[in-house]
Simulated assay, not measured.
Amino acid sequence: MSDQNDWRKQALDLGPVLLFVAGYVLVREKTFAIGGRDYEGFVIVTACFIPLLLLTNWLLYKLTGKVSRMQIFTLVLAVVFGGLTVALNDERFFKMKSTLAFGIFSGLLWIGIARGQSWLEFVMDGALPITHEGWMILTRRLAIFFAGVAVANEIIWRGFSTDVFVAWDTFGQMAAMMGFFVTQAGLFKRHSTEET
């Protein structure tokens, strides 16, 4: 992929999230009357986020020729739970999305582990040059991590303000994921299949 396409891919990946946060900050304390119903700012931003997410995933597919299985799954959850949020005028549905997503990811990884398989290796299409044993260890650790993120999401959306939830959902989870993979550097080195 060229540098220009790589820049576009990053913009399409991060753009919707950044626009969601910007939109939320602008309208979080406002209420909008539409069709005889009052909608809080979070619900309005969610209503705008869904088509934006669909558009950026379509553009990503046009640019790269593929969209990962994880991106498709996340998109489906965002559309379903975002749609429920807007249709029922209840922000709790969108807030539950990450709990369900990370819970399902964790459960699926544990099913693979029970079968002696690393479904993570399958999903990532062998993107990391590590041994099968390394993939199995990484899969176990990631299954535990995903379960922890699901629990954290439940605690945060139920116990804290929407402002805290938005920060967690957009930046906290991403930071936690990056931190997780940074801590796996020793595993990648010990189980590397590369000579150097």
Rank of each mutant, 00 (worst) to 15 (best):
L100F: 10
R8N: 12
E194K: 09
V166K: 06
F122P: 00
A114D: 06
G65H: 03
V43T: 13
V151L: 14
L138S: 01
V21S: 02
I155N: 04
W135N: 09
G65I: 08
S106F: 09
R28G: 07
I44R: 06
L77Q: 08
I156P: 02
G134N: 01
E91Q: 13
T139N: 12
K66E: 15
I137K: 15
I34W: 04
G134A: 06
W119P: 02
F180C: 11
A114H: 11
P129R: 14
L142C: 05
C48D: 06
R8W: 12
G103E: 07
D125N: 11
F160E: 08
F81P: 04
L53A: 15
Y24I: 03
V43Y: 00
V164P: 00
V80F: 05
G159M: 01
M124R: 13
A47V: 05
A175I: 15
R190H: 10
G23D: 03
A185V: 01
P129N: 09
C48Q: 04
R115F: 02
I34G: 07
V166G: 08
L53V: 03
L12I: 11
V182N: 08
V76R: 12
V86L: 01
G134T: 02
F32Y: 14
L18W: 04
I130W: 02
F181D: 09
G83S: 09
T64E: 14
D90Q: 14
M178Y: 08
A33N: 10
G23S: 13
M174Q: 08
A150H: 07
L63S: 08
T183P: 03
R69H: 04
M124A: 15
D90F: 14
G65K: 05
D38W: 00
F42V: 06
M96T: 03
L19R: 04
L142I: 06
E91V: 12
W168H: 08
L108F: 13
V25N: 11
V86M: 03
W110Y: 10
T183V: 11
V149Q: 06
G82Q: 13
G83V: 02
G103S: 11
L59Q: 12
P16D: 10
F165N: 08
V79G: 11
G15F: 08
T99M: 14
V17P: 00
Q71P: 00
L84K: 03
K66N: 15
V80W: 00
L55F: 12
G82H: 08
M174P: 04
E133V: 10
T131A: 09
K9G: 12
I34A: 10
G35W: 03
S106G: 14
V80H: 02
F102L: 13
R141G: 13
G103T: 07
G112Y: 00
F145G: 07
G112M: 01
L142D: 02
S68L: 09
R28W: 02
V25Q: 13
F32Q: 06
K9L: 15
V25T: 13
S118C: 11
I72W: 04
Q184P: 00
